[in-house]
């Protein structure tokens, strides 16, 4: 979405995901803030960070080649990760599964943890909400119009620039939310985002740059490929994701749902 509206390839998503999880873990440790509160508070904090990032840094490079913002966000990632390491060390912080979601349920032959089901359902919910906002509201229409064709939207009297900051902040907030959701099942440390961003990149490319539906479909696709890959070829499961990406690029250079001009 950030790419669609701004033409900015945000490479700092991994770092924002990490920040989301770290903030949740630190708040839990120092103030006892529960998972449920963090689920609301962390995205808000991340939204503010996103707004600051956009206002202070990203906006100045918008007029230049997108590569500059790519480098900027990459630099921000290195900076943030090292800052967190300096402050909180490299060992993971503790983040237990939230109370009430610790159990397991049996669904026929498979047994799933309640938290997994919750995380999956919550992700779907967030997707649906984002989709509804984008398709059913005026704000969503403006954002979509700007994504489709910023020039023409501007010609129609829409102040595209006004929406740039909140959209950027929203994107960062979502990354932070993902971090909170991941905290109970992943190790929470400064490096947790570095791996995430690579998979994310594959998902975006497979789905098609700038396509929101594409990103959702590709996300599930990549998840399935990884899971089956683990089952059948073990250590090569991650390679499979990139094989999939290479195949998609080979046959559909713009990604599954991308448009040619976006690529």
């Amino acid at each position: 979405m950030i790419f669609g509206v701004l033409g900015v390839v945000n490479f700092s998503h991994g770092a924002c995901y990490m920040l989301g999880a770290m903030i949740a873990a630190i708040l839990l440790r120092d103030t006892g803030m529960t998972f449920w509160v963090a689920l609301v508070v962390v995205p808000l904090v991340m939204f503010l960070i996103g707004v600051l990032m956009e206002r202070l840094l990203v906006q100045w490079l918008l007029k230049l080649d997108p590569l500059y913002n790519f480098l900027l966000t990459f630099g921000l990632t290195l900076f943030t990760v090292d800052l967190v390491k300096r402050q909180y060390g490299v060992s993971s912080l503790a983040y237990p599964v939230p109370a009430g979601l610790g159990g397991r349920v049996s669904l026929g032959s498979v047994e799933l943890s309640v938290y997994q089901i919750f995380a999956a359902a919550f992700s779907v919910l967030v997707c649906v909400v984002v989709w509804l906002v984008l398709t059913k509201t005026r704000v969503g229409m403006i954002v979509r119009a700007s994504t489709e064709d910023a020039e023409r939207s501007r010609a129609l009297g829409i102040n595209v620039a006004r929406w740039v900051t909140p959209v950027f902040g929203f994107g960062i907030a979502l990354a932070g939310l993902a971090g909170v959701l991941a905290a109970p099942t992943r190790s929470v440390n400064a490096d947790m985002g570095s791996f995430f961003v690579i998979i994310l990149f594959a998902i975006v490319v497979i789905g098609g740059l700038g396509s929101i539906l594409g990103a959702v479909v590709a996300g599930f696709l990549v998840g399935l490929v990884e899971a089956y890959g683990q089952g059948y070829v073990g250590q090569f499961s991650q390679v499979l994701i990139f094989v999939l990406m290479a195949l998609v690029i080979l046959f559909r250079p713009a990604g599954l749902f991308g448009r040619e001009e976006a690529a």
């Binding site: 683990q230 073990g234 991650q238």
Partner: peptide, 17 residues
Amino acid sequence: KIATPFPNDNFATFITK
């Protein structure tokens, strides 16, 4: 003996196996 990628953050299927 189950080999996994390194580094890796999702072990779900390996654990089931």
